[in-house]
Design a protein around this nucleic acid. Structure first.
Lengths: 345, 345
DNA sequence: CTGTTAGCGCCTTCAA
DNA sequence: TTGAAGGCGCTAACAG
């Protein structure tokens, strides 16, 4: 049988308002009364009905993570799990629960979020928004729901968002390759409608330009590289009359494919082609050779996003005050794939 | 301003009960009335308040996935994301939402689940229970809450669970190695308190025994193999006076570490040591050589778990009827790591 | 077929 | 400092 406030109240010989006050830590309760009620609550194993509480307070203490549809290959599942861990850890600390929803397509995503928010099941949403022209962002923006973007919007810039400086990250990665003596550097980019992907491309271009290096369009490959584990793409790249000696790769998982493709073609990493990738997932250390990577602080990204969103939910007033763009620092992690053998390790 | 049933009702010139009936598809509504109400609902953009509905119906149409604490290394994040996809896909089909929670430790997991269930925020729980003596299972069992185990319980066998036949899977994998001509076969096991791990070990042993092959305790390695990416463990294994020519590895990610360790030691896979692993995550195809693996149908595992749990929630009556143990078929996927080069590919 | 009534369990006035 | 009353938005039971 369900233990309600009423029952606790009756048993304790007080009114249910008093019990309510004790539960919510209201100051206007005599110390003695409070202790007595608490004791009875323990005895009866009272657990508040969150649903009833939600109905009254119009808040749910829960947020929703909207994960993009499966076929966004460029980010591995490793990435998302790590993100979820960051979000969940912080959310729990703040006493929030987490809904998770996987959109099948953009339209469905909007419906899902709409249902969750309007149905008052969640107080806010964390979006992993890489794409340009995101209908979900539009929806949330228009309806003024609390949400935070992991990544950034190219449409609205006053939106709450947690991101890396992807331009700088790619710039740093490219410079690392340059500092290793490379002059011809290629880039395996992610999907062209993904903002982070464009940012990284831009950083790469800037570094090439700032160093007065050669720049060739055929050194930039699309993400279709992943097909047949990079075999054809690498075959194409390595058979160019002027081929690069190093490449940046948009994600570790893709770098894996690239390395595998190169191996099949009997090329050696890093001797024939040096590689540096992004995200620094567990994979980088398991690869052979180990992969140099830009650590973008995935966990931090999630942790911060959760923190920022919850703060906004709990304090909607300062909506336009303060910062609304949070940048997580990246770090260059150098491993075998970008260190020429002749330099030693 | 929130659009409620009352407002829709007033606008449509009917009572709110009628609106309620229309929403819930109750039969006793005149076709015409229904159409009129629906039209007004659309016009006013009415969205039902799920919280209020929950309060009355005492159901939430949501389930919770409890993910084990981070340090269970043997299963990679890839595994969990795939599981989540399976669960989420099926749950959405049934109109259920998903809570996710990451336990930090067993005690916290119990508290979490307890809060969620008693607080009536979720109707049931999907547990990834690998370990023996699981306090969460005890709690759910005692309180008679709807839940399903992915894996199995060695304590209660009438519990709803979705699992592989891990014994058979390991048996099949071992036989595959045997059929490739191997006589000395090792095993890299998962955590010893994990049931699936023990099941697999048993299957391996059985296959060795059934084929009258040699069996040596030093050929069985613990999961600490993952330390320093398997270098030391492989060094130990390969330096045994009588060393195995093939091994089973409990998870793809671990197999990765093993291969990397072997590479560092200048051993070749599969020539010096053939490898077959479990789970068949994306990694297997990206490795070099590609890894033979037992596909345990991770997505199916999740999909089925969700299906079974939701059925139980919606129809609690047949609690003890029918099957309560569902087995997902496994498949042997043969790749390069277990095919001797001399046999060709 | 439709409307009225009475809660679900909690929180928040308003009085006392 | 406490209690009584009313309502959050919806559903279920009972009349009509």
């Amino acid at each position: 049988m369900k233990v309600t406030m009423k029952k606790v109240a009756r048993r304790a010989g007080v009114s249910s308002s008093t019990v309510s006050r004790v539960v919510s830590g209201h100051p206007n309760v005599r110390e003695e009364t409070s202790r007595k009620v608490k004791k009875i609550m323990d005895e009866m194993k009272y657990t508040p009905n969150m649903i009833a509480k939600s109905l009254v307070s119009k808040t749910t203490s829960s947020i929703c993570i909207l994960l993009p549809k499966q076929d966004e290959k460029c980010f591995s599942n490793l990435f998302f799990m790590e993100l979820i861990r960051g979000i969940a850890t912080q959310a729990n600390l703040s006493g929030f629960d987490i809904f998770i929803s996987l959109g099948a397509n953009e339209k469905e995503e909007v419906e899902m979020v709409s249902r969750l928010l309007k149905g008052r099941r969640v107080d806010g949403v964390i979006l992993f928004s890489s794409r340009k022209e995101d209908a979900v962002v539009d929806f949330l923006k228009i309806n003024n729901y609390p949400f935070v973007l992991i990544g950034r919007s190219d449409k609205y810039n006053e939106i709450l968002s947690v991101d890396n400086n992807n331009l700088k990250a790619a710039y740093d990665a490219t410079n690392h390759l340059i500092s290793m003596g490379h002059k011809r550097i290629g880039f395996v980019r992610g999907p062209s409608n993904a903002i982070f992907s464009c940012d990284r491309l831009e950083g790469y271009r800037k570094a090439i330009q700032d160093n007065g290096l050669e720049r060739r369009p055929e050194w930039i490959l699309g993400e279709e590289v992943m097909q047949d584990s990079g075999y054809h793409a690498m075959s194409f790249l390595m058979n160019l009359p002027k081929r690069p000696t190093a490449i940046l790769v948009v994600d570790d998982l893709v770098a894996f494919g690239v390395i595998r493709g190169l191996n099949k073609l009997k090329y050696k990493v890093p001797d024939d082609l040096a590689i540096i990738s992004f995200n620094n997932t567990t994979l980088t250390e398991l690869s052979n050779p180990t992969i140099s990577s830009i650590d973008i602080g995935i966990y931090q990204l999630g942790y911060t996003a959760s923190q920022v969103l919850i703060k906004r939910i709990q304090n909607p007033s300062n909506e336009t005050q303060h910062t609304n763009r949070f940048i997580i620092e990246h770090r260059l992690i150098v491993r075998e794939s970008s260190i020429p053998k002749r330099l030693g390790v």
